[in-house]
């Protein structure tokens, strides 16, 4: 469960990127955050990964107030969260395998196990045939599949996606969204930040709509 209690985030004094946000996202929810550019969507996601800390308020994730986790312990929490970006954030000069294996290598798993798990997850996202290709040789859709594989290979309980279809065409976007749906049905909490109305209309049940850092609309279907 993710709980925001009166969360404020300010980058410059007096100006809030997020202002008094309170909400609860239950375990296993499929949640959309929407709003125009600068509405606070990315800030919201960055707060969940503890990339940034709130200026005020508390963020409780799986029973832990993540704002108070010491810097040298935060990596343990981050392993519970898989993140996907619009620009994929892959190591372009490394192979698909290397990119996905990164999440498992940091856990100190033996290479044999890593190979098995990476292949399994690449098969799931449908890119296993390109396992040894460098990511820069892949198309946008393929790169996003690799990014998804990297995010889910460690079996996180929360998956965050920041404009995951922003660089993709409609058909590929649809396939990627179907993957998120599948992950959600497997039990993961999926939070997607997007301003794509087509996707929202097609997939969204639970929506947080942000405007200038404030909640404009919150729709939660029980």
């Amino acid at each position: 469960m993710i709980q925001f209690s009166s969360v404020y985030k300010s980058y410059t004094r007096g100006e809030y990127a997020l202002e008094g946000v309170s909400l609860k996202i239950d375990k296993g929810d499929f949640f959309f955050i929407t709003g125009h550019s600068g509405a606070g969507k990315t800030t919201f996601l960055k707060l969940i990964t503890r990339e940034i800390k709130p200026t005020k308020g508390a963020i409780i994730i799986n029973g832990k107030n993540i704002s108070v986790i010491p810097e040298n312990k935060i990596f343990v929490f981050r392993r519970e969260v898989g993140v996907i970006f619009q620009d994929f954030r892959l190591l372009q000069d490394r192979s698909v395998f290397d990119n996905v294996a990164l999440s498992l290598k940091i856990r100190g798993l033996p290479l044999k196990t890593i190979k098995k798990e990476v292949l399994e997850v690449l098969r799931w996202v449908g890119i296993h045939h390109k396992i040894w290709k460098r990511t820069r040789t892949l198309s946008g859709g393929e790169q996003q599949r690799v990014a998804i594989a990297r995010a889910i290979v460690g079996k996180p309980s929360i998956i965050l996606a920041d404009e995951p279809t922003g660089n993709l065409d409609e058909e590929i976007s649809f396939e990627i969204m179907e993957m998120f749906k599948k992950l959600n049905t497997r039990g993961a909490t999926v939070i997607i930040a997007t301003h794509d109305k087509f996707l929202i209309n097609r997939y969204a049940k639970n929506i947080l709509s942000l405007k200038k850092g404030k909640i404009e609309n919150l729709r939660v279907v029980q």
Partner: peptide, 16 residues
């Protein structure tokens, strides 16, 4: 730099 930010994102410790 890029790799470090990815490593942090996927949960690598500072030690790693």
């Amino acid at each position: 730099k890029e790799e470090v930010s990815i490593l942090k994102m996927v949960g690598a410790s500072n030690f790693y």
